[in-house]
Design a protein around this nucleic acid. Structure first.
Length: 129
RNA sequence: CGAGCCGGCCAGACAGUCGCGACGUGCGCGAGCACGCCGAGGAAAGUCCGGGCUCCACAGGGCAGGGUGCCAGGUAACGCCUGGGCGGCGCAAGCCGACGGAAAGUGCAACAGAGAACAGACCGCCGAUGGCCCGCGAGGGAUCAGGCAAGGGUGAAACGGUGCGGCAAGAGCGCACCGCGCGCGGGGCCAACGCCGCGCGGCACGGCAAACCCCACCCGGAGCAAGACCACAUAGGGGAGCGAUGGCUUAGCCCUGAGCCGCUCCCGGGUAGGUCGCUAGAGCCUGGCGGCGACGCCAGGCCGAGAGGAAUGACUGUCCACGACAGAACCCGGCUUACCGGCCGGCUCACCUU
């Protein structure tokens, strides 16, 4: 039950968090999304979302993308390593439907977990666990 | 039943699963948990107007600048709404209109056309009058001077229309009627207006003021990251007192007034960290009364998002008329723009039946 919730401590809430993430982060991208990430100070994955007006000038479209990202993160966050993530929507996301966005995000989470396990040594990961 | 006009309302429904935010209650030292309840729109949009609220030391006057523009109401206010007038469109119900002033001044008018503003003569008409020619003469002829603006033609627009008289031909040149203008009286509860009556004037005063302009009325500036408070590094911050000159002072300039820069003393302080502002309001519903109406007054009832790295969602299933435009960010009143469709009421026209 707790695995599927999205409490506040699993989100990036402060300006400072975003600034720190931007200062030092690794990147990873798919057609609709770009992700910046770094090891989290907390013991679990935390999410930040950025959907700018450049993606779509319509608030309804931006809200839809934001909600799909939130929902996908909520359902998958238990399987993710302890990272601070900033998911940035790209312009192509506005044209994709929800199912496509979900599929892409699911792939993204898998890639993120795998990439982290092999490249950055297990040593850096230990901070969370 | 068909075509159409006006007004009001709705904006997929239901079930299950997993979530998010506010509030209330309970539990917990606490992060939080449980239960209950609520959780986008008619346009939340564009940010085009008008207010409330807040701060800018700031009050008054003048100029500049901006806005509005038939009249009267409504309103907190408006560029909005209602009613009326005028003009245009429609058979009609109805709809649309920046709709003050061109006898203050300046300016503009492409193309066409002879001529575009106190105009003009291309075609045309006349040639009475003075010449010319013919004729003995009465008279006749052409058109030089000249006269004309009726007809043709151009144009978005050509300096009233019809008829009669008049004339060489014509012309408001004269007259009748129509039109127009001015004045007075009535009407319109006031007004815009020009419906009616009377009198005067042969008739001018052409168009454009979303060209300058004139007239009337209105208008400080910035905006909730406004602004207030609390907790935390060095003050350039704040308060009080004293002040001649000079300088400076949030819309642009000037004037008056006021304040600041200086000195002394005192308090403490920037900053998207947190809290407040933050939703109970020009509020909504029902009824009554006044008003043609917009709306106002009175009584009773109701509480209908409040986030802030930013909630109001996602998935699955079933059904149908297969779901448009679109997401609150301080709050209201409007306007404008976008939009799949559906429901209700009133009205108009056409046709059919009786």
């Amino acid at each position: 039950m707790a695995d599927l919730g999205l409490p506040r401590h699993a989100r990036l809430l402060r300006r400072a968090d975003f600034a720190a993430l931007r200062a030092a982060s690794a990147r990873c991208a798919t057609p609709c999304f770009a992700v910046e990430y770094r090891p989290s100070a907390a013991a679990l994955a935390r999410l930040g979302i950025a959907v700018s007006r450049r993606v779509s000038k319509h608030a309804v479209v931006r809200n839809r993308i934001r909600r799909v990202i939130r929902e996908s993160f909520r359902l998958n966050r238990a399987a993710l390593p302890a990272l601070d993530l900033l998911v940035v929507a790209r312009a192509r996301a506005a044209a994709a439907d929800n199912a496509a966005l979900r599929a892409e995000l699911a792939a993204l989470w898998r890639r993120l977990a795998a990439a982290l396990n092999e490249t950055s040594a297990p040593g850096t990961m230990r901070a969370g666990s």
